[in-house]
């Protein structure tokens, strides 16, 4: 690989590292965008089948070209900027929403050693970047200069800040037992223990000893991405479409892309932190990226399943769940895990 790339590297000279990194970034973002496009189709199909409908089936065979048609439609539509809006921030809003959900992919490991930036503080970096996602919503809601978007963005600010806390505590439990902030190390430390030696490595992953944290993380992830049943931010019965009311065409599409990219990010992170990443669930099958993809698809299905199943939460119940249930539970579990690790019963030595 190195020898093959050498002539190309010579061609670019000193700027080669930058060019090579750019190529790697495109190699991550382009498949991600295709996944986002087909996740929208998958969502409509899955919800369709759950509600005994067939879902989109007109564009292309079995409706497989529907995302392309949607994309072209959104690209060609006019972008309308309301006359009372704050123009600069109105355009900045969707960009701020999408950018963090793409930046976070820099530290996500896809296989052993297959990661764009193998940084030591990867988990911290993820926490910092995902905490910035809320700005897109807030800025968009304020810059629209309209009531419903503003109400939506206020709800988003409160909701996302609340659920970040419990998410953070869940991550603290993970880093306690893996003793590392590096995501690759977090995956490799899950491949040890009695069950792993017996060839049943899916029993040695973090999701069993940290089961309450696993549940809290998935539910907080749904709340963080403002997905149903936590979608009061865009609850159409109350605030029309929240922060997206005034947006059209490509600016709206950016919010859409950001939401689905975030869903995929939360799912892949759940797979890495709790479900052993690219590790094979049984000893006799080889590890590999396909396991990570399969686990991510499983969590994504839970996202869609929840949307088709549950009615929307009332706003005060969302706040109660975040502050009065999740935060005490996670706080107690951090102490439990810390004591467990120091006790003779520890399974992580």
């Amino acid at each position: 690989m190195e020898a093959m790339l050498q002539p190309v590297a010579d061609l670019f000279g000193p700027i080669w590292p930058a060019v090579w990194t750019l190529v790697k970034i495109i190699a991550i973002i382009a498949p991600l965008m295709i996944c986002v496009a087909y996740l929208t189709l998958a969502e409509r199909k899955v919800i369709g089948y759950m509600q005994v409908r067939i879902g989109p089936n007109r564009v292309g065979p079995m409706g497989l070209l529907q995302p392309m048609a949607d994309g072209i439609k959104l690209l060609l539509k006019e972008i309308i900027v309301p006359s009372g809006a704050n123009k600069g921030l109105f355009i900045l809003g969707p960009i701020l929403a999408l950018a963090p959900s793409l930046v976070a992919w820099a530290v996500v490991p896809f296989d052993d050693g297959l990661v764009l930036a193998n940084v030591n503080a990867g988990l911290l970096f993820l926490l910092a970047i995902t905490s910035m996602e809320v700005y897109g919503v807030i800025v968009a809601g304020w810059a629209s200069n309209s009531k419903y978007p503003f109400l939506g963005s206020m709800r988003a600010a409160a909701q996302m800040v609340s659920y970040e806390v419990s998410m953070g505590f869940a991550l603290i439990c993970v880093l306690l037992i893996s003793a590392s902030l590096n995501l690759t190390d977090i995956v490799t430390t899950q491949a040890q223990g009695r069950f792993h030696d017996m060839g049943l490595s899916f029993l040695s992953w973090n999701w069993i000893p940290l089961f309450p944290m696993f549940v809290v993380y998935v539910i907080s992830g749904i709340a963080e991405t403002n997905r149903a049943p936590f979608d009061v931010v865009e609850g159409e019965a109350e605030v029309v479409a929240g922060h997206m009311v005034e947006y059209s065409g490509m600016t709206f599409a950016l919010f859409f892309l950001a939401e689905y990219a975030n869903m995929i990010l939360v799912s892949i992170l759940t797979s890495i932190l709790f479900l052993g990443g690219w590790l094979s669930p049984v000893g006799f099958l080889p590890d590999g990226f396909h396991w990570l993809a399969l686990k991510t698809a499983m969590i994504l299905f839970i996202f869609l399943w929840a949307r088709a199943t549950f009615p929307r939460f009332r706003y005060d119940h969302i706040m109660r769940l975040g502050w009065k249930v999740f935060i005490p539970v996670t706080l107690v579990w951090v102490v439990v895990v810390a004591v467990w690790m120091m006790s003779p019963l520890s399974i992580w030595n």
């Binding site: 926490l127 910092a128 905490s131 910035m132 809320v134 600010a157 800040v161 970040e164």
Partner: peptide, 8 residues
Amino acid sequence: YVGAVMVL
């Protein structure tokens, strides 16, 4: 600061 304080 960016993720929590400035949001509030």
